[in-house]
Design a protein around this nucleic acid. Structure first.
Lengths: 135, 135
DNA sequence: ATGAATACCGATTGCCGATCGGTGTTCGGG
DNA sequence: CCCGAACACCGATCGGCAATCGGTATTCAT
């Protein structure tokens, strides 16, 4: 499952769903269509495309679809990162991961330490032998 | 400086330059134009676009341009990753980095440990107080 | 049954990369 | 000095895709 390229309205619709949870086309239109002077059917087409791209789920409540995101915003962006990195299994030997860590370190003073903590926690979850954490 | 969207030929041209180093349009055409049945001017236009996108440098040798990449392949992909992650300064609080580390951990058994080593080395370079490395 | 809300479909528009051909320019050899 | 080859540069066209709209069919509720 890969992340396709998204248009500007598609991204806006996704953002709305991430912030407001499962919604109908009508709700999205009320929020986004107003400023953009956009028809409801345009929003419906956008939702339909996102659904075909496997980024949205839908469920027919009565005769209207209720749309929900398949991934969280974080998961989505993480997959986009993985795709940008190329093959993850070879990303380290390519030096891609090292270059990215370098970018993280430059972006913010604390970012590198936070990343270190995240990695350490992931390692602990993988091998609970060394004494995991409760929270 | 952000990473613009690239077409398929643009990516192929970039790949060629990464593998063969500084080249002229003619060389790129010999390698890529043959299979694709593409004119030399098409390659020239593509190089020109990549140059305008700040992804290539050029130097006029006699009356021909010699094109070279601005970033290495790893740097390029790392920046693309950073862009996919959104604002790096807030990526950790968003959980994006955690989700990405999770993806790395799932991709390969050793990938997580390699990432940990990369992060650790970056920390040491930042604070050489704890004893640097020679290699 | 009628009307409102919605799904669904087709057409149009706009944007951008890809591709080509034409034209000007420059360098090097005769 | 001139001519041809190689190349840069420009404009036009094509194709794909998202965005947008309007129209029509469908479905539910009253």
């Amino acid at each position: 499952m890969d992340i396709p390229a998204l248009g500007e309205l598609e991204s806006a619709v996704l953002d709305f769903l991430w912030e407001h949870g499962t919604s109908e086309a009508k709700d999205v239109h009320k929020a986004l269509g107003a400023r953009r002077e956009i028809t409801l059917s345009t929003i419906q087409s956008t939702l339909e495309r996102l659904y075909r791209k496997r980024l949205l789920m839908r469920e027919k409540v009565s005769h209207a679809y209720r749309y929900a995101t398949v991934l969280t915003r974080s998961e989505f962006r993480a997959r986009a990162m993985a795709e940008a990195a190329g093959d993850l299994k070879q990303a380290d030997s390519n030096g891609v991961l090292a270059a990215f860590v370098d970018l993280v370190a430059r972006s913010d003073k604390n970012a590198l330490d936070e990343l270190a903590r995240i990695v350490e926690r992931a390692q602990e979850e993988r091998r609970p032998s060394k004494g995991g954490r409760s929270s």
